[in-house]
Amino acid sequence: MLSFLLVALAAAAVTAVASAALLRLSRRFRLAPEVRERDVHRTPTPRLGGIAMFVGIIVGCLFATTQDDFSTLFALSTQVWAILGACTLIAAVGVLDDLFDLDWMIKLAGQLAASGLLAWQGIQIVSLPFGDTQIVASATMNFALTVFLMTLVMNAVNFIDGLDGLVAGFAIISNSAFFLYTQLLTDRSGETPAVTLAGLIAAIVVGVCVGFLPFNWHRAKMFMGDTGALLVGLLMATSTVSVTGQLNPAVLDQKLVLASYIPIILPVAVLALPLADFSLAVLRRLRAGQSPFAADRKHLHHRLLDMGHSQVQAVSIFYLWTAVISLACLLVFTMRSFALPFAVLFAGTALCLVVTLVPASRLRAGLARRGLLPLRAGKTPADERTSE
Rank of each mutant, 00 (worst) to 15 (best):
L6P: 02
G165W: 01
T43M: 11
W120S: 05
G190M: 07
I204S: 09
G60L: 09
P129I: 09
L23Q: 12
L145E: 12
Q124I: 00
N155K: 03
A198N: 11
V257L: 11
A10F: 14
S174N: 08
R24N: 12
A368T: 04
I123T: 10
F215W: 10
I90F: 06
N155G: 01
H302R: 13
L375W: 01
M335I: 05
P33F: 11
I173E: 14
A259R: 06
V35D: 05
T196M: 13
L213I: 01
A32S: 14
V344N: 11
A194D: 15
T380Q: 04
A360I: 07
Q313G: 14
L185N: 12
A281W: 06
P374W: 00
V232E: 05
V93G: 03
G207I: 01
T43C: 10
L234I: 07
V358L: 14
L149N: 02
L6M: 09
T66P: 13
A276G: 15
L48W: 10
L286C: 06
A203N: 05
L73R: 12
L273V: 15
L320V: 00
R376E: 13
D306F: 09
F223D: 12
A202M: 01
H299Y: 05
G366W: 11
R38P: 06
I172L: 07
L25H: 01
H299T: 12
I51S: 15
S127I: 00
L184R: 02
A52V: 05
V355S: 09
L234C: 08
L145I: 12
L185Q: 14
L76K: 08
E37C: 02
L73T: 14
L275S: 08
S279D: 05
F63S: 06
M222D: 10
L351W: 04
Q111W: 00
T65F: 00
G308T: 15
F29I: 00
E191C: 03
P129G: 04
Q290N: 03
F63N: 03
T386A: 11
I160D: 15
V268Y: 07
H299K: 14
A18S: 12
W81L: 08
S279H: 02
R336G: 13
A272D: 11
D296L: 02
M335H: 07
V35M: 04
L256S: 15
M154W: 08
D164K: 03
E384M: 04
I58F: 05
S316L: 15
F333L: 01
A276D: 13
Q134K: 02
A323Q: 11
Y319P: 11
A64K: 05
A314W: 02
H309R: 12
S174E: 08
C329E: 03
V59N: 03
L22T: 10
S26H: 10
A75D: 14
F63E: 04
D97T: 03
L235Y: 07
V251A: 15
L304P: 10
L99Q: 13
Q111S: 01
A288G: 07
D253V: 09
Q111N: 02
I160Q: 14
P374N: 05
A281G: 06
I265K: 00
V136G: 10
V93H: 01
R376P: 01
I172M: 13
S3V: 08
S26R: 05
L163R: 07
A8G: 10
A171L: 01
L149K: 09
